[in-house]
Design a protein around this nucleic acid. Structure first.
Lengths: 380, 380
DNA sequence: TGGTTTTAGTCCATAATCTGTACATAATCC
DNA sequence: GGATTATGTACAGATTATGGACTAAAACCA
């Protein structure tokens, strides 16, 4: 809400963000080019860049000639050597951490296997805190300053409190003050969507569908995650596919999860690789299960497209390895139901980020904050 | 996108908006109270208020004593006497216009019956232009300056172009330059949602469900309408209720509209009042139809709640008079399917704005712009 | 009644930040 | 080597907010 008045320092904060965002979006620029792009004067840009240089957000990366004549400019680009963000993830069977610098280069990556199903939150969080200490120490040894972190959890989050993570068996766990860094917590699907935004195909408008034990989705519109009123938006797994279908653990009937959740897909199989192996060998039952799941996913996504209006649909998590078998039924269902109202329905594509999407997205969230508010995040 | 740098005038523009929004949200304030609320100094507030007074956005509305002692302050409140907004609506069987002042008082209201089904856009737009001329002339005779307008249409809109309005039989009609005023066009459901926001219960988070021949929905989160990537979000009418149900005019099967659209509800009856009369007299068939429609609506809304996470659900349009018969089945379906995941599902309430929601919301959109950007809209 | 206290609103010198012009710098062109 | 062109900095000027002093108008108190 428009509530507090702004002073001179807000103007400068905004302009720092504008300059940094321009470099971030469109690559290295000379000060002169930045002045042109932003509409600010060369004088102002010089002064802003000086601040960003000092804060370690950008570096001068060599001379460039714009036209054929004239003095060459000095390119200013994002610095990968000073500022970094910490991404974290708690999931059913592992803890993960990563450190990413401002250039979106993954500098460090750690995973610890752990049986977190129905575990004691305090214990797991202690393990996570150790992982953080270890990871930040390593990052600092490389000269990086970790200026913030974010944590992805497989459950619903409100104001830094994990409300409910059914598969972990956690309820109302306060995780925001895990470490003494600026710190955020968010749903695994939302952060995986950010992962796709920052480390994926470069699109800024899509619905990321995260197939795990549950099915979540994160909507990105114009590079921003849509969270709904209470941060609970995107629960694709419980969209109704068949109103009087089989009961779901959520208390409803015929939810998507019943048809396309990991348990439904695997049946008696132990793992996704086992399923893909069967699919590759042409196993009839496996193919039919996938066909059925794909069709249900297509029906649920039809509702999602009508309600959310996504730019495209990105299938991630366990749907990524199964994409070759899901693509047909999903696109088929969407095409049949959307063609007349939308011309071409949204494209259905596979995620490039793989299983890392959520941790990477957590780090991406922090980087996004730095780009959006460099003055606050870097203490300028 | 953060793209253009900001100068001193942006700072002032922002502070004008902050002051105006504070008065708008929380009623009349003295300059001193505004300074306290906004964090600006009394000096700055005085200067900003002087500009807003001159532009006709606010008036001094009498002395007020804050505490018990001290000089009484002069209350500054929104002015209803100078600036006004024009709301317009094209619908199947009428054209409507209204003029609303900054205090949200409806100053003028005109409706013209017309058979617009499968009509010639140029003809209808000419009629609308006449209505605009007449209405603005009347408003100006009352001393009001109409500073902008917006038009609600029963169809999809992209960048000021009406892409498709199936019930009017219109496709790709350019309406943004209907008159020489700052002018916006938007979907009927989105603007009806704004109508509920500005002239309804005062809630800032809800999903407005607009029952008409088609069924649309407008999601408001934190006082802002969510439009999706292409402005097509909220198409509740084609959310899938039964995947292999009866065919819908959209090409899909088992869409909500098939079960709860106006045609499905009325059957062979001629009008909604006729239906309510039958319902009141306990007509078995009518009651069953309503029960069925309510249940389908509840199923579709379950999916909508999971995906959009609305604060509450407001039933409007033809669902408003039918609310007594719909409430039970809708709330029942939502309760059964959402209780376990959400504790209490969103409340289902009836709209107070009635059939006027969309025109009023169109005017509300303009007022929203004035509050958000007084400098631009009022030429400060 | 008149002085004191308290709160509202204005005046004016000061500070922060951006703009615009002038200028130093560094390259190519001829 | 001088002309031309483009980059980046320096400095005066413009805009807008701040902060303390000041005026205004009320209640409180003796």
């Amino acid at each position: 809400m428009a509530s507090r008045g702004v002073r001179h320092d807000s103007m400068r904060a905004r302009n720092l963000a504008v300059v940094l965002a321009t470099i971030h979006r469109s690559g290295p620029h000379t000060r002169a080019a930045l002045a042109e792009r932003t509409g600010l004067t060369k004088t102002t840009v010089s002064s802003l860049v000086a601040d960003l240089l000092e804060a370690g957000a950008v570096t001068e990366s060599g001379a460039v000639r714009g036209g054929e004549r004239g003095r060459p400019g000095m390119a200013v680009s994002l610095s990968g050597h000073r500022v970094a963000a910490l991404g974290l993830e708690v999931n059913i069977d592992y803890l993960a951490a990563c450190v990413v610098d401002l250039t979106r280069t993954v500098r460090l990556r750690r995973t610890v296997s752990a049986g977190n199903r129905n575990s004691d939150p305090a214990l797991i969080l202690a393990g996570l805190r150790d992982l953080v200490k270890q990871t930040t120490a390593e990052a600092e040894a490389e000269g990086l300053r970790v200026i913030g972190g974010a944590l992805a959890v497989p459950g619903t989050v409100e104001d830094g409190v994990l409300r409910s993570a059914p598969h972990l068996g956690w309820r109302d766990v306060r995780v925001a003050d895990l470490v003494d860094l600026p710190f955020a917590v968010d749903n695994e699907a939302n952060l995986a969507a950010l992962g796709e935004l920052w480390f994926g195909s470069g699109e800024t408008d899509f619905l990321y569908v995260s197939g795990e034990i549950g099915i979540g989705a994160g909507l990105v519109v114009g590079g921003t995650v849509f969270r709904g009123t209470f941060g609970l938006a995107g629960e694709l797994g419980h969209v109704v596919v068949v109103p009087d279908g089989p009961g779901c653990r959520c208390g409803g009937r015929g939810c998507l999860e019943v048809y396309a959740g990991q348990d439904a897909l695997l049946g008696e199989l132990a793992s996704v690789p086992e399923l893909t192996a069967r699919l590759e060998s042409g196993d009839r039952e496996a193919l039919e299960t996938c066909e059925r799941a794909g069709h249900a996913l297509g029906v649920a996504l039809t509702s999602a497209v009508h309600l959310l209006d996504p730019g495209r649909i990105v299938l991630g998590g366990i749907f990524a390895p199964l994409f070759p078998w899901l693509e047909g039924p999903v696109a088929g269902a969407l095409g049949a139901r959307l063609a007349q109202m939308r011309g071409t329905p949204p494209a259905v594509v596979v995620s490039r980020t793989g299983a890392d999407a959520a941790v990477l997205g957590a780090a991406g969230l922090v980087i996004q904050q730095v780009i959006a508010e460099p003055a606050r995040m870097l203490g300028l």
